[in-house]
């Protein structure tokens, strides 16, 4: 829902970091985005392409790793993925807070992140180097 504003904060943070290293170009950026955020990856990619135009990020490769939701059960100690609701009414499988092991309510431990994991910078423009 808020991909453009979130992506614009991402681009800003990258430009700031790249500036510290006197980078000529940013070649690649790696994001971790949790499945429980309300960020659509397609919209993040689109916003990124628009926002990087005319900056040293233009032409960079954007890698997004989608992080699974992780829950923790205080009752039986289960830690792992969600139990998904398999009712056919859900076209997209919907996670529930029910423990897949014992049925008690679980706490959310992971899946809400939106993190810039790392980036590759080109320090000189002389070589034309592609990202991996």
């Amino acid at each position: 829902m808020h991909e453009f504003s979130v992506t614009s904060q991402i681009v800003e943070a990258i430009l700031k970091e790249a500036g510290k290293h006197n980078a000529k170009r940013v070649v690649a950026v790696h994001l971790d985005i949790g499945k429980l955020t309300f960020l659509g990856l397609e919209q993040v990619r689109f916003s990124y392409e628009v926002l990087v135009k005319g900056t040293i990020l233009e032409g960079s490769k954007l890698y997004i790793e989608e992080k699974d939701g992780i829950v923790n059960c205080r009752s039986c100690g289960y830690e792992g993925g969600f139990q998904y609701e398999d009712d056919p009414i859900y076209h997209i499988p919907t996670p529930t807070l029910r423990c897949p092991n014992c049925g008690e309510t679980v706490e959310i431990e992971g899946g809400r992140e939106c993190t810039i994991r790392d980036m590759k910078l080109l320090i000189s423009e002389d070589d034309k180097t592609d990202a991996d």
Partner: peptide, 20 residues
């Protein structure tokens, strides 16, 4: 220092939604 044209791999851990 990096050689000319060297690619720097910068590890970051900036969580954008963390600010709110």
């Amino acid at each position: 220092e990096a050689e000319k044209g060297e690619i720097f791999d910068i590890e970051l851990d900036v969580n954008i939604l963390e600010a709110n």
